[in-house]
Amino acid sequence: MQKQLTLLLMDPPYESETTTTAFRIISEAQKKGIKVSVFAYEGAVSLTVATQKPHANAPKGCADVKVQNHPTTKAWVEGLLAQGQLEWTYCGLCADERGSEGNMVAGAKRGTPGDFVKAAAASTNVLVIPTR
């Protein structure tokens, strides 16, 4: 039986290291053939906002956005989704209150805590990564 891992994320993009660590866990799990479900709660719904844009870094002397190659969390999530074996669900109410509904990357699905419960019940293990 295929193993399944569920993660609940809460941190918004560009605010902590925990999300990057979660991305690394997801990537490694995918390589091992483990199915991953993510429930993005509260600020984490912004991880998949589609209109995120990379930027250059003029104060540090880099005016070329291509050279700066700034990552965006939405690009990372898109990359992870492209690897397969990943379901990304964001809290619909959290997206509504942040005005981000309708501005999500393809593959990110609106959901409720009930979806998290279903995924958790089907999972080998669950990791909650809250905001600190």
């Binding site: 560009y14 290291e17 700066q68 700034h70």
Partner: peptide, 23 residues
């Protein structure tokens, strides 16, 4: 320290200090 340094490619407080100096 080390909060979003990977996502931002730098420390946001230090970056802001630099920007306040440069700009």
């Amino acid at each position: 320290a080390y909060h979003a340094t990977l996502e931002e490619q730098d420390d946001v407080a230090l970056w802001f200090s630099l920007a306040m100096k440069v700009q």
